[in-house]
Write a protein that binds this DNA or RNA. Structure first.
Lengths: 152, 152
DNA sequence: TTACTTGCAAACGGTTTGCATCGAG
DNA sequence: CTCGATGCAAACCGTTTGCAAGTAA
C-alpha cells in the first residue's frame, strides 16, 4: 500500500483552451460546457465536447475560470477576474449574465456558525439568482411565455 | 394557444411516501435518492427507484423535505423541520449530517446586492460544508485514507 | 368504479473515459 | 522522439418517463 507520487503533467499550449477562455471572457455570463461547445462550433471551430470538458477543468485549476452548479445540477463556467480571492456572484436567471460580488460578511458568518456547531474545515457556497435589469425590461414589454429561463 | 388549466391531482395516502419520510427523519442528514432507495431495500421494503424520486418530489412540495444540490451536482434530501421559513444548513462532508441554520443577515445582504445591481426577483442558495465534531474525532484517531467524503 | 400510485425498463441529458491519432517542444 | 492534447464513440450515472398493473377512496 505504498503511495505513488504522480507528477502533474506539464501543460502544453493549446489553441482549444485559448478559444474556450476567449468565449468565457466575451460572454460575461455563466455557460454550460455544452453551450460553450455550441458557440465554438457556430464560430466554425472544430472541437470535440470531451476537449471542452477537459479544458474547462484545466482553466478552473489554473484559476482562470469560476465554476458553479446551477439549481438544475448543471455545471456552469465563467471567466474569473478575481483568481485570488473567494467571491460570489449574482446571476441572471434569464440570460445567465453574472457579476462578481464581494460579500466579506459571509466569511465571518460562516466561521461563527462553524464554531457554534463545532464544525471544522468549513467552506460555503453562496450564489444569488435573479433577473437582471435588461431582461426585466424586455420581459415587461413582451409576451412572457416566449422567454424561457436558462436557470430554474 | 390557450392556457389549459390542469388541476393538481389529489394525493392519496401512500405507504411508500411514509417510509421515505421515515428514513429522512431517522437519518438526520442529506441523502441522495439512490441512498434512500438502498436503505429501504436493505430494510426489506420492496420499492422502485422511480417511486423514490416521485415521492421525494412530492415531499418537497408538501414542505416536509428540504432539497439541496451537492457540490457534485447530485440532488440531496433531508427532513425539514422548518417548513415555513427559508433557512440554510451546515452539512458534514464526511457523514452528510445536517443541521438547520437561521441566518437572517443573508436575506438582507441579498436584497442590498440585488438593489445595487438592479436585479429583481432575487433568490439565493447558501449552504455551509464542513466536518462535524464526531467525524473530526474519528478522523484524527484513524487512518485517513479509509474515510471517504460523501460530498466533495 | 375512478384515477392516483407503483414498478419496470427504456429513454434522457450531462459528464467521463478508452483509445488511436495528432502535434507541441 | 516524447508525451500531452484532441476527437470520436462508448460508457457512466443520476434522473425522468411511458405504460400496464395495483390499489385507495
Amino acid at each position: 500500500m505504498k503511495r505513488i507520487k504522480i507528477a502533474a503533467p506539464v501543460k502544453r499550449n493549446s489553441t482549444r483552451r485559448d478559444k474556450i477562455h476567449q468565449v468565457l471572457t466575451e460572454k460575461r455570463s455563466f455557460l454550460s460546457s455544452q453551450e460553450i461547445h455550441k458557440v465554438l462550433i457556430r464560430q466554425g471551430i472544430s472541437i470535440g465536447i470531451a476537449t471542452v470538458y477537459r479544458q474547462l477543468e484545466s482553466l478552473v485549476q489554473q484559476g482562470r475560470a469560476d465554476t458553479i452548479i446551477s439549481p438544475k445540477g448543471e455545471r456552469l463556467y465563467s471567466n474569473c477576474s478575481q483568481a485570488e480571492t473567494h467571491h460570489h456572484h449574482i446571476i441572471c436567471r434569464i440570460c445567465g449574465a453574472a457579476e462578481e460580488l464581494d460579500i466579506p460578511e459571509v466569511e465571518k458568518l460562516s466561521k461563527i456558525f462553524a464554531q457554534h456547531h463545532k464544525y471544522t474545515d468549513v467552506s460555503h457556497s453562496l450564489e444569488l439568482f435573479g433577473v437582471c435589469f435588461s431582461c426585466a425590461s424586455i420581459q415587461s414589454s413582451s409576451i412572457k411565455s416566449k422567454r424561457k429561463p436558462k436557470l430554474s
